[in-house]
């Protein structure tokens, strides 16, 4: 047991802390862009012209219908082979990950945003316009604040997923938590111990994020407006 603690403290934890930083560097921008894309795509899927709706729907079903690992593979390995004239886009592993995570997460997020928007009854918009608000005012001041609260739990869940799926970055050589863990495991042959600790790191990340999201949800909740629990 002490041997295990020793191993964790001297060999695993210092390296994994570095990995944790790298993971956060992936997760935070991806979550930000994911939400941004999700909000935009969600709104376009509800309010867009038929053509725009078709296009955003296609984007969403493509990214939800294929595994993230295939998408990452495409962004990192395949994209350089797409030539536009002489020009080809070569992404660093990090950039490929943030791009892949954001686009994929955004597609999932848009589902909840769309659901949230659709759940707000037409009467709300009409009532706002009846008071003399412009359509823009009515949407941003009346509909969106309600829709975002409705979408919040689902979007929060997607961020939790994003944290876990950020581990896929190790497959395209990013040295984040999982990648560094694999390095340690290979070097020390202590697979069980190392991956247990890696698992704990993710567990901690997910738990902290869950608590933070739950706090935020409660902070902005309106009596009687919540979705039922979980």
């Amino acid at each position: 047991m002490t041997e295990f603690v020793d191993f964790v403290l001297t060999e695993v934890a210092p390296a994994l802390n570095q990995g944790l930083v790298a993971s956060l560097e992936l997760i935070l921008p991806s979550a930000f862009f994911g939400v941004l894309i999700g909000l935009t795509a969600g709104a376009l899927r509800v309010y867009g012209s038929p053509l725009v709706r078709r296009l955003t729907d296609t984007y969403v079903s493509l990214f939800r219908g294929t595994p993230l690992v295939v998408q990452l593979y495409f962004w990192y390995f395949a994209l350089p082979y797409v030539h536009v004239g002489e020009f080809a886009l070569v992404l660093s592993p990090f950039a490929a990950c943030v791009l892949g995570f954001s686009l994929c997460s955004g597609a999932y997020q848009s589902e909840y945003v769309r659901g949230g928007l659709l759940s707000i009854r037409k009467g709300q918009l009409k009532a706002a316009q009846a008071l003399g608000m412009t359509a823009f005012q009515a949407v941003t001041r009346i509909v969106l604040p309600q829709a975002i609260r409705r979408a919040f739990p689902g979007c929060g869940n997607e961020i939790i997923y994003l944290i876990k799926y950020s581990s896929l970055a190790s497959i395209i050589t990013v040295n984040e938590l999982t990648g560094i863990g694999r390095g340690i495991a290979k070097a020390t042959f202590k697979n069980t111990e190392t991956y247990l600790v890696v698992g704990l790191y993710y567990l901690a990340l997910v738990t902290v994020a869950t608590l933070a999201l739950r706090w935020a949800e409660r902070r902005f909740s309106i009596p009687g407006f919540e979705y039922q629990e979980e």
Binding site: N191, T192, T194, T207
Partner: peptide, 23 residues
Amino acid sequence: VWLFRGVPILVQMYLFYFGILAW
């Protein structure tokens, strides 16, 4: 539920296969 929803599939694969199963 907390355990299995908190640890990525990838890490679990490594842990089960290269760790626990090998052991």
